[in-house]
Design a protein around this nucleic acid. Sequence first.
DNA 1: ACGGAAAATGAAAACGTGTTCATTCTTTGA
DNA 2: TCAAAGAATGAACACGTTTTCATTTTCCGT
Lengths: 346, 346
Amino acid sequence: MSDESGITRGRATAEMVAQRANVSRVAVSRAFNPHTSLKPEKRDLILRIAQELNYTPDRAARALVSGRSHLVGVIVPDVCSHWESQEIDALTTALQNEGFATLLFKTRTDYSMDEKLLAYMRGFNPDSVIAFVENVKPTTLARFLDRAVPIYVHYPYPGEADDEEAGPLHDRLNVLQRAGIEQAVALLQGYGAQRIAYVSGLGKSRANTAREQMLRTVMAERGLPPPVIAPSDYSYDMAYAATLDLFRIGQGADAIFAANDVGAFGVLDALRHELGLRVPEDVKVVGFDDIAQSHWKSYNLTTVKFDLAERVRALVRLILRRLNNPAAPALQETLQTRLVVRGTVG
Amino acid sequence: MSDESGITRGRATAEMVAQRANVSRVAVSRAFNPHTSLKPEKRDLILRIAQELNYTPDRAARALVSGRSHLVGVIVPDVCSHWESQEIDALTTALQNEGFATLLFKTRTDYSMDEKLLAYMRGFNPDSVIAFVENVKPTTLARFLDRAVPIYVHYPYPGEADDEEAGPLHDRLNVLQRAGIEQAVALLQGYGAQRIAYVSGLGKSRANTAREQMLRTVMAERGLPPPVIAPSDYSYDMAYAATLDLFRIGQGADAIFAANDVGAFGVLDALRHELGLRVPEDVKVVGFDDIAQSHWKSYNLTTVKFDLAERVRALVRLILRRLNNPAAPALQETLQTRLVVRGTVG
DNA sequence: ACGGAAAATGAAAACGTGTTCATTCTTTGA
DNA sequence: TCAAAGAATGAACACGTTTTCATTTTCCGT
């Protein structure tokens, strides 16, 4: 009752709202938490006054007592990689709709995990963590996260998805690459391709090795000779250089699989602008991801598509289900792939 | 002394560390805060035991009492826009080095500001906020941030930067576009370009209108007719369509300025793959930003460069200076632009 | 009108830390 | 050797919320 001027310096607190509404401070807390019993008209009054005073519950205080920070940590080596940035974008939107905020952390770009970063991140107390970093065992991650449960994006090797084993130990999203790769190889073979090269991603990355093995397996099944491996690291520049090597030092190829779309762009530019080859007449090219840039006219890339929206939905489902039931057995989601046919095979 | 097994469920607390080290809880707090008086050997002991117990101070609790969340909010319409993603990447790295974490929020893509989002974000108590959203008055932003001070990226209109006026009201980064645009126009004019078109960014955006006005001013100063405006929205697809309109419905042009690099890619692809024109022989093209993709062989774009690293350093400087002295008068930083010459003008 | 169940309410405790303040220990200078 | 200054220390408080628990009020069926 002391200060009638609406302007109070600093942030409004539940106490102020309570005082103004002639209710207890607890009632204010209840007004902001849906599943509590509070007379509707009282709740309305409180919410109205809260809006007047520009009050929102302090999430730090809330986190302290409820054990929920409503923060989701995202660890990523390169925010500006095309696929990553598109996934972060969709993920942030989806999480925001569920009342969570995205906490971004950058780690070394060699796809290894930094224990110092993990300890640092843990200080912020995320409810959950999504790691784009590969080759980090979930158990390592878990050691640094008390309440948070890490979510693992898993790329099964050929055959691995078939045997159910004892079930996974950690929540994970299984990305099944076989379908898309089979379609791509069938298409290439249909156009008469025989010598297929693979411009790889970063050698140590699980996504890459699983991709390469799956390609090798599928090609063997269809009676094709094993692919020539051109080592690269997912980047445009390395893929560009690897393609030059493949044709100038190596034996060349009549079709090239790139480990990701950006790499495929490098392959295309090297073929067309440096080697003077035509795509798809002389060499056919297939990418991985189907990022937004792949339909651009200069590339118009045929590629194995991961459905981004579907993937994000699956991740968010995993997070929410785990948070609702921390003691549940390991959860699992599955994501399929398929070929998107554009102009670089034909 | 009760539990000798190192495994205690849940998170370690300062109390546990204190007990194990035979010191008071306050000492533990001091061990983690550099500028407090604590016997060195005691500090070492505490830090060692903390590491053993995997202890880190809880930032939520710390924020509650110290008023510093060590969170920096970043509001962005599109994480996956090329420039934005590259800036977020660099910003996250720089902030991380200073002990801050990046809190990502996505707003509507029409570059307007959503009050509900602001209220939502405020709940997380960021120490500072960087808004990529344009056309939001800093005062509006400030109303929703108690402790946090918004940082405004400002694109002065022609002449505006010259008069010092009474100084700015809010912390801001001034991006001076004149130098780069002057170099670009001079180069185009040197190659004989007369009819210059501008494929715009999103009409309402301040960056875009300032860019357009600056181009108009510079061209007038050099005796060129005013540019033809082809309305677009920073996207590849719209720039592509706008270019087709320009040549099929409009009068065409012998040089095109695109409001950003991605737009310039759309322009290039439309010219080459749909209109059958050669670049730079028939039409010259200049972009804005100098994103990483601009040196790719398919585009090899001549463009006005904003120095990303410099820009991020300036932003971080602004944040830290403001946090160190909340009462300081409005701070200001300045960023220059310059032309990067590649293959689309010549 | 009555008893019992359900809903509504507020006081007090809890969350894990930084900060203030008074006290104790150590060092310094003459 | 002594006083004074400075460093080191811990008890108590503060931060803003949710949760627990006991109490009061309201509602319902008989």
